[in-house]
Design a protein around this nucleic acid. Structure first.
Length: 933
DNA sequence: ACGCTCACG
DNA sequence: GACGTACGTGAGCGTA
């Protein structure tokens, strides 16, 4: 029978059901294999409830509509559409196809169409139903659907369990359903990232539309608006507003390919429902559905059902042992396609690349390994070369390898497919290799970062260590393939059979680690840390590293020359003073000259019997003799030359002409990044001579460098976490915090503050962050230990909250074995209950970690939000130096960049944590880093 | 491979 | 009462 008068259609927004189910339930997994099924279970419950309700409401037709998940036509209109959506939780993705299966199992029509959102499909069916003379109820909480209300179409919000009609639309938008699109086009939508008109919200938009009738009239007569702000917002952004309208207006002409008749409400077929529920191991639901349908629920075998993720370890015992002999060497397209198909089927793929270098910007890809299941792994050799060059000195490819570009072309769709999760160990490396080959790998999971989120402080997170610790398996060492030291060869010279065993094993191990870590993230309560502070940082850092920073070789080379001259001169003077030639760079020889030959006082031998000749000791000796001062000068120049002016030149990439550092996300236990090859986080700044090295870090013509750094961020965090009202107030008032501390401690009014008193207070403030001790402060200030202890006692007397915070933090660590940042990052403190001197170290580290770690979390949050915030500006984020971000930007846009980036940085803690003191960011710009800082 | 020294936050 | 200490990093060098 044709759909028409008297018929009533229920249209269900399936995606809304899924998300609601996912967030309402704990992470449940199927007992037999650990498959995440929480969202599916919740979805089935909601659907079952809805089916019961539909009958009660005399629905005659029903359908569940899903989002197809891939890009839609709206992304072609506006590429930023929905661009700020958080990434999908990794355990939700594989449940999507199961919810479709569930819908079909309940004998309900289900539909999704590539290129369109569920909302468009719903709009299309709603129109068809209306035109046929029937009525429609839409089940969704999505306000975008409210434009469809009226004339036989109403909505039901399942979250609030309430009907939405014309009155509710008026209440929410200030206009009727027919003008909802106009209002939304003006107001924009931050959730979907619809731009709208800047500065116009829902209220103003409704006011304008009601005054002018509709959007087109309003835009045509925008010049008449009296308020200058509103007038400009509309006149200047007319195009953006029209684009916004195309984004919010639902299409009701989607080629759906099915008719309304096919949605006729059918009773569920007991057998099909039961088969599905049994497969999912949903015992309770089987019983409930069975009773209603009058079918016996089949019993589940022992050990089946579902449970909260990680409740039991099933992974290891059920897995096949790791056997490198079983891996496949891929030499033809059909075999490769087989792995790709398996990846699509499962929704995940473990990937690893083998290359000629650890430097991602110079490395050439040699092969790719893949794994889809524990034990099911393959290696695709691409560019292995013969061990010896031929007679002409030419390298020759080993025969039997597939063409690199053909393999990449085959892999690109799956590597870029948003519905297939790519799993790797240190994915930033592989993502950069692929990016250089034109493949943007996403979405990703990273076992190194999962381990870091769970185990920071317990051990490092390299693959060999993780495999040993968590799989009890020692992977083939890379040394066995490429050798070590001077005789090491690059991976392209490795025999393909050996490479297959090694490389595929890495992918296999990575996949197994991922399966083991996944449920444990929830258990360790670090899912949010992983999802918001680790995983999203990978693409951000990859971008920064690939951008690199321009370094002027000339500047460095000139400085190197000058340093060399000055050093030679100093060396001669030193040797004359010593009365003999010796290696000034050898602490051992220097110690013997100073303390044995010249008999200067204060010679202390370290653990291996050598005299200590550190800067502080030489500074003390400088009053006794000329030589130590000269050595200090020589050392400074030597350091600057070897570590900076010489070494940095070697790091200039010949292709890009820029220096590309690599950030280690999991290198520092506190959450800080670490920079290597080269380390761009310790470029000199404290001494005048050193600071000049920053003049070599330059912006290209027409651009400038912009530096933004958090002012006193760790002290601000201390004021918050230790809850010290006096410190908090000073930060709110913008008072010099060290002067204020000094004033409180020494009873000196701010107006009479001397730089010496302030210096002491500053040292104490920093000392507190480090877990202060009388000894440490005494050494830092070069004052007697008793005096230093006196300062500390006075400080604690004045700010008792600090002492309480320190004690509470240590106690927390002793009881739980870890400390936490404000954002939930855990830093383990395994040595906290040790005896001996180690105990002191562990306590101070435990006190420092939440403060340093919270600061690290904050700048991570800022960095993750930054690409979105500066999109459209001719600007790039280049470097991070713990509390500083460095950008390169076209000169004309520098001030815009500063204001946008500053806003992101100062607001980075929100909305997760409301810090009681303002975060303040200071900005500078200039032709080089010295000027910008 | 390890420790010393020193550059940074 | 003695011990040994500021927190977090990475690079280059000399020495074993």
């Amino acid at each position: 029978m044709a759909f028409g008068k008297g018929h009533h259609l229920h249209l269900i927004d399936g995606s809304a059901f899924i998300f609601r189910a996912y967030h309402a339930l704990p992470p449940l997994t199927r007992k037999s294999d650990g498959l995440p099924v929480g969202a599916v279970a919740g979805f089935c419950n909601l659907l079952w409830g809805e089916l019961t309700a539909a009958r009660a409401q005399a629905a005659t037709h029903i359908a569940v509509i899903f989002d197809a998940g891939s890009k839609t036509f709206r992304n072609e209109i506006y590429d930023q559409y929905k661009a700020n959506r958080p990434p999908l939780p990794e355990d939700l993705r594989p449940q999507f196809p199961l919810t479709r299966d569930a819908t079909r199992a309940f004998n309900v029509a289900c539909l999704e169409i590539d290129g369109f959102e569920a909302d468009d499909i719903i709009a299309t069916f709603a129109r068809q139903a209306k035109e046929a003379g029937g009525t429609v109820t839409i089940f969704s909480s999505d306000k975008d659907l409210m434009q469809l209300i009226g004339d036989g179409v109403d909505m039901h919000d399942p979250m609030k369990n309430k009907r939405l009609g014309r009155e509710e639309v008026l209440e929410k938008f200030g206009v009727g359903p027919e003008r909802v699109v106009d209002v939304q086009s003006l107001a924009g939508d931050s959730v979907d990232n619809v731009p709208g008109a800047p500065g116009i919200g829902l209220k103003t938009a409704a006011l304008l539309i009601n005054e002018y009738g509709d959007l087109d009239t309003l835009l045509a007569r925008a010049g008449e608006i009296k308020q200058p702000k509103r007038r400009e917002a509309l006149v200047d952004n007319a195009d953006l507003i029209r684009i916004s309208r195309d984004l919010v207006r639902l299409r009701d002409d989607v080629p759906v390919g099915v008719t309304l008749e096919s949605f006729e409400l059918q009773p569920p077929q007991g057998e099909a429902v039961m088969a599905f529920l049994k497969q999912m191991e949903f015992a309770t639901l089987m019983k409930r559905v069975g009773e209603k349908l009058g079918v016996a629920a089949p019993a589940l075998e022992a050990g089946k059902g579902y449970e909260v993720a990680g409740a039991h370890e099933v992974a290891e015992v059920t897995q096949a042992p790791i056997d490198p002999g079983s891996y496949v060497c891929v030499r033809d397209m059909a075999t490769l396609q087989g792995f790709i198909d398996q990846a699509r089927q499962r929704g995940w793929l473990a990937v690893d690349t083998e290359t000629t270098s650890l430097d991602e910007m110079r490395a050439e890809i040699v092969g790719i390994s893949l794994a889809v299941e524990p034990g099911v792994a393959a290696y695709v050799p691409l560019l292995h070369r013969t061990g010896t060059d031929d007679l002409l000195g030419q390298v020759t490819l080993v025969p039997g390898q597939m063409d690199r570009d053909a393999v990449l072309a085959a892999l690109k769709p799956v590597l870029e497919d948003p519905s297939v999760l790519k799993i790797g160990q240190n994915m930033k490396y592989d993502a950069k290799i692929f990016a250089r080959l034109g493949v943007q790998v996403a979405p990703i999971d990273d076992t190194m970062l999962m381990s870091y989120a769970m185990h920071a402080g317990l051990h490092n997170h390299g693959m060999d260590e993780l495999s040993q610790t968590y799989l009890g398996h020692t992977p083939i060492p890379i040394k066995e393939l490429i050798g070590s030291g001077k005789s090491a060869v690059t991976f392209d010279r490795v025999d393909i059979d050996k490479a297959t065993r090694y490389a595929a094993e890495d992918a296999d191990v990575t996949l197994r680690l991922w399966q083991m870590f996944k449920p444990k993230l929830h258990q360790a309560k670090v899912t949010t840390v992983y999802e918001t502070l680790e995983r999203p940082l990978v693409p951000v850092l990859a971008e920064m590293e690939m951008a690199g920073i321009e370094v002027d070789r000339q500047v460095l080379s000139r400085m190197s020359g000058a340093f060399a001259q000055k050093m030679a001169q100093l060396e001669e003077e030193i040797q004359t003073l010593a009365g003999e030639k010796f290696n000034v760079g050898s602490p051992k020889q220097l110690g013997e000259i100073l303390f044995d030959k010249m008999s200067l006082p204060g010679g202390e031998k370290g653990k291996n019997g050598a005299y200590s000749t550190g800067a502080d000791i030489l500074e003390d000796l400088a009053t006794e003799h000329e030589l130590p001062g000269r050595v200090l000068d020589w050392r400074q120049l030597s350091k600057l030359k070897s570590t900076y002016t010489d070494a940095l030149q070697d790091h200039i990439n010949p292709e890009t002409g820029r220096v590309h550092t690599s950030y280690s996300i999991s290198g520092a236990v506190t959450g800080r990044l670490a920079s290597t090859d080269p380390n761009l986080q310790n470029i000199p700044v404290r001494s005048e001579e050193g600071r000049r090295i920053r003049e070599a870090f330059v912006a290209p013509k027409g651009k400038v460098l912009v530096s933004l750094d958090y002012s006193q961020i760790e002290l601000r965090i201390l004021a918050h976490v230790a809850d010290i009202p006096a410190l908090q107030q000073s930060f709110r008032d913008g008072i010099d915090i060290h002067a204020m501390t000094a004033s409180e401690m020494f009873n000196v009014p701010l107006s009479e503050m001397t730089s010496d008193i302030r210096r002491k207070a500053k040292a104490i403030n920093f000392g507190v962050i480090y877990g202060i001790s009388g000894f440490g402060l005494a050494r830092n200030l070069r004052i007697p230990r008793g005096e230093a202890q006196g300062f500390i006692d006075r400080y604690f007397e004045r700010f008792p909250g600090i002492k309480e915070y320190m004690a509470a933090t240590v106690k927390f660590a002793q009881e739980r074995g870890y400390v936490q940042t404000l954002f939930g990052r855990k830093i383990h403190t395994p040595e906290i209950n040790a005896r001996g001197p180690g105990a002191g170290f562990a306590k101070r580290a435990a006190i420092n970690a939440p403060i340093q770690g919270t600061a690290a979390d904050i700048i991570r949050r800022a960095m993750i939000r930054m690409p979105q915030a500066i999109a459209g500006l001719p600007a790039k984020m280049l470097l991070q130096v713990h509390d500083e971000l460095l950008f390169e930007v076209e000169e004309a846009a520098a001030d815009t960049l500063i204001s946008r980036a500053k806003e992101v940085m100062e607001g980075a803690a929100h909305p997760a944590v409301a810090i009681k003191v303002p975060l303040v960011v200071e900005a500078g710009k200039g032709a080089n880093w010295a000027e910008a800082h």
